[in-house]
C-alpha cells in the first residue's frame, strides 16, 4: 500500500500544491527524453561494446510500455555521435540522420525506400521494433543482437524504476513518498511487465491524494 504521508512544507513554497509531499510535481506525469534517459534502470555497457564493431545491429523487440524507447534514449545519451529517429504511424517517414550508430524507433514502420537506404548504409544500427527484422538485417550483412524487452520487468526493477521517478520530483531535503517491494509486487501482479500502465495508475493515485487532501495510504 503506497504511503503518501504529508511532510512539513518548505518555507516560502507553501503555494506549491505538491509541497505537502515534498515534491514539485506529480512524479508519474510525462517526462522529457532527457529525463527518461537519466532515470532509466537499464545497463547499456554491453551494447555499447558491441556497437563499436562494424555492421552491428541491436534490435529491441517487445510490446508497448515495456521499455524499448527508454533503452534507445539511454543509448542515445551515451553515444554523442548517434542519431535518433522516431517513425510515426500515420505520417510520412521523416528524414533519417546519418549517425554512429543510427537509432530508429518503431523500425517496423520504415517504408521500403527508407529501409533500403538505412540497411545498405553500413552504419551500426539500433532499432526498436514490434516485428523481428533479424532476417532482413542479416540479408544486408549485419550481425544482429536481439533483446526481448519486458521479460526482466520484475518487482525489483519496477521498484527501483518507480522510486527513481519519485526521487526525481523531489522538492527539497527530507523524506519523499516511496514504494515498497510489496507495492511493486502488487503492480507486477496487476500489470505484468507493462511499466507504462503502472505509471498511469500511480499518476491517478498521486493526483487523487492531492485533490482530496488524503494523508496516508492509497
Amino acid at each position: 500500500m503506497l504511503n503518501l504521508r504529508p511532510v512539513e512544507k518548505q518555507t516560502g513554497l507553501e503555494w506549491l500544491p505538491w509541497a505537502g509531499l515534498n515534491l514539485h510535481r506529480n512524479p508519474f506525469g510525462e517526462l522529457t527524453s532527457e529525463e527518461r534517459s537519466e532515470l532509466a534502470v537499464v545497463e547499456v555497457d554491453d551494447w555499447l561494446e558491441m556497437l563499436r564493431k562494424p555492421m552491428c545491429a541491436v534490435q529491441f523487440i517487445g510490446a508497448c510500455g515495456r521499455g524499448k524507447t527508454t533503452r534507445m534514449l539511454k543509448l542515445r545519451s551515451r553515444l554523442p555521435e548517434s542519431s535518433y529517429t522516431y517513425i510515426p504511424e500515420d505520417l510520412p517517414c521523416p528524414p533519417i540522420e546519418l549517425g554512429n550508430p543510427v537509432l530508429i524507433d518503431e523500425a517496423q514502420r520504415l517504408p521500403r525506400a527508407a529501409r533500403r537506404r538505412v540497411f545498405t548504409s553500413g552504419c551500426s544500427l539500433v532499432i526498436a521494433t514490434h516485428r523481428n527484422l533479424e532476417r532482413v538485417l542479416r540479408k544486408h550483412g549485419y550481425r544482429v543482437i536481439t533483446e526481448h524487452v519486458g521479460a526482466g520487468n520484475g518487482p525489483h526493477l519496477v521498484l527501483e524504476s518507480l522510486n527513481r521517478r519519485i526521487e526525481a520530483s523531489r522538492l527539497g531535503k527530507g523524506p519523499v513518498p516511496t514504494l515498497s517491494l510489496g507495492d511493486a509486487k502488487a503492480l507486477v501482479k496487476e500489470f505484468g511487465s507493462d511499466i507504462r500502465s503502472m505509471e498511469n495508475k500511480l499518476y491517478v493515485l498521486f493526483q487523487e491524494c492531492l485533490e482530496v487532501g488524503k494523508d496516508g495510504k492509497v
Binding site: 517517414c93 540522420e97 525506400a113
Partner: peptide, 11 residues
C-alpha cells in the same frame, strides 16, 4: 550539422 541518410517521403 549532419548529413541525412534519408530525406523523407515528401521532399
Amino acid at each position: 550539422e549532419r548529413r541525412l541518410l534519408y530525406a523523407g517521403d515528401q521532399d
